[in-house]
Design a protein around this nucleic acid. Structure first.
Length: 270
DNA sequence: AATGGAGGCAACCGCTGTTTC
DNA sequence: GGAAACAGCGGTTGCCTCCAT
């Protein structure tokens, strides 16, 4: 509260703006290997000229393996509308009820699509669950804890009228919490968590390690102590490029289950 | 085909809440 | 108990793409 905080990082000499594919891969590789215990220290450890905040944001909103890309379904949009009616602009809370969606993404969708739609359809009672339909920014009247409890969800007419399916047993433990608290290895070793992910494809561990090796070599991440990595013997330049390109589309979160994560291919065009 | 405007999205900024010393 | 450090959240902005003219 009002304690003048030191800036999260030295702002001089740090990259800003859009992330490059190389930065993305550095970040992914580092988190994959070491997790993200300390965001502040991560950029230095990963060799990134970014502040920890920026790395965290990039990972949370874009690079995380369980991100669900693509358009929001009708059900997801309805869920957002209804939850926003209850929670207000608590994007993180809303996001915790929509596995695979980020608070930033939901916020963007709300501001660009749903708010307008609600304005247009404000007469439609099925979409106006907010107690203050005239001002969507009004503070909610229910407590956060109660909003995500099964008890209140069942009681709330606005929710029961819809088809919101939210894991309610542990309102404060969402998918995000799982990911934040557990190391990637822990996640990888928890088969049940894999069920949370959709659009999962399998590749072999050999492939997994192969492209990782390629990436490391490509980016000069090999420190030598790792045994010099399988080297690119027999791997053509084209194949390396394809591996790097493919990596971003199927970011491995574990040795077995992989999740699609779409990074604009155009970024690799150059 | 070129240009301007609108919309969408990724990223940054500043504040708050929590944890640690 | 207080201060500092850190992570997280929400608001805002700027850039890029698409579409209409």
């Amino acid at each position: 509260m009002g304690r003048g905080r030191a800036p999260c990082c030295e702002k001089v000499g740090l990259n800003r703006g859009s992330w490059t594919p190389e930065e993305d891969i550095r970040l992914i590789t580092h988190i994959r290997k070491h997790g993200h215990g300390n965001w502040r220290a991560l950029p230095k450890q990963a060799g990134l000229l970014r502040c920890g905040k920026s790395c965290r944001l990039r990972w949370i909103n874009y690079l995380r393996p369980d991100i669900k890309r693509g358009n929001f379904s009708k059900e997801e949009e309805n869920t957002i509308i209804k939850l926003h009616g209850l929670l207000g602009n608590k994007w993180a809370k809303i996001a915790s009820c929509l596995p695979g969606r980020t608070d930033n993404e939901i916020k963007n969708v709300w501001n660009t699509h749903l708010k307008k739609r609600l304005n247009n359809n404000h007469q439609d009672p099925s979409l106006s669950t907010t107690p203050s339909s005239s001002s969507s920014e009004a503070a909610p009247t229910l407590s956060i804890e109660s909003k995500c409890s099964a008890e209140h969800a069942e009681d709330a007419e606005s929710l029961s009228a819809g088809r919101i399916e939210i894991p309610l047993e542990e309102p404060n433990l969402g998918l995000w919490d799982l990911l934040d608290d557990a190391s990637l290895d822990t996640i990888a070793n928890a088969p049940s968590n894999a069920e949370l992910w959709s659009d999962v494809v399998d590749i072999t561990t050999a492939e997994d390690s192969q492209w990782l090796a390629i990436l490391e070599e490509e980016l000069g991440l090999m420190d030598g102590s790792g045994g010099g990595g399988g080297g690119s013997g027999g791997v053509t330049e084209e194949e390396v490029g394809e591996a790097v390109r493919g990596y971003v589309h199927r970011i491995p979160s574990s040795p077995s289950p992989l999740h699609f994560c779409s990074l604009p291919v155009s970024k690799f065009a150059s």
